[in-house]
Simulated scan of single mutants.
Amino acid sequence: MTARRAHLPVGDTAILISCLYLTSAPAQPAAGRLAEEFGPRRVFVAGIVLKFTAGVVGSSAHSLTALIVARVLIGAGTSAGNPAAMLLIRRRAEQAGHEAPPRGCSADC
């Protein structure tokens, strides 16, 4: 939804960008902690569910408030992916007997 289509001044829609980043900043470390506590797959799936919900809310939005809610959900859902993936990679490396995940990829990758 564009600012023109929503009959809003363009400046008022700047909050859509701000709320995404303000949500993501604390949500990513929190997702990392939750992944360690409850398991990375659960946190990753919860992030996918949040992003799906955000898509439904955003696509049916008829107000700036609904779009803000959608962007907050997107920020929280997206923040779950990286910490969960990093924990999965770290655990897999430990299972394979490595002290840390590999830093690069050989030509066989």
Rank of each mutant, 00 (worst) to 15 (best):
I89P: 08
L22G: 05
A107T: 11
P29K: 01
L20Q: 00
S79V: 10
T2C: 07
V45I: 13
L73M: 12
A46D: 06
I17Y: 04
P101M: 12
A100F: 12
L64W: 02
D108E: 12
G75L: 06
A61G: 03
P40G: 15
G77C: 07
S63F: 08
G11N: 07
A100L: 14
R90W: 13
S79G: 10
F52G: 06
A25M: 03
F52L: 08
A35E: 08
A96K: 13
S60E: 06
E99G: 14
R90C: 15
A96Q: 15
T78K: 00
S60I: 09
Q95M: 15
T53C: 09
S24L: 09
V56I: 11
H62P: 01
E37M: 14
P9C: 02
L50N: 01
N82A: 14
E99F: 11
S60D: 04
V10F: 08
E37D: 12
A93N: 14
G81V: 10
M1F: 07
A46T: 12
L34M: 10
P101R: 10
A93I: 14
A3E: 01
A66D: 05
G47W: 00
I15K: 02
L20V: 11
P26K: 00
A14S: 06
R33L: 15
A3I: 04
N82T: 13
G58W: 00
V10A: 11
I15P: 01
A14K: 02
R41Q: 15
L88P: 07
K51A: 07
I89R: 03
A6N: 03
E94D: 15
S24K: 00
E99N: 12
S60N: 08
G75S: 04
G32C: 09
C109G: 10
V43I: 15
A107G: 06
S59W: 05
F38C: 13
I15M: 06
T78L: 08
T13C: 12
G55N: 00
V72T: 03
D12C: 09
R5W: 07
C109M: 10
T2Q: 04
R42H: 13
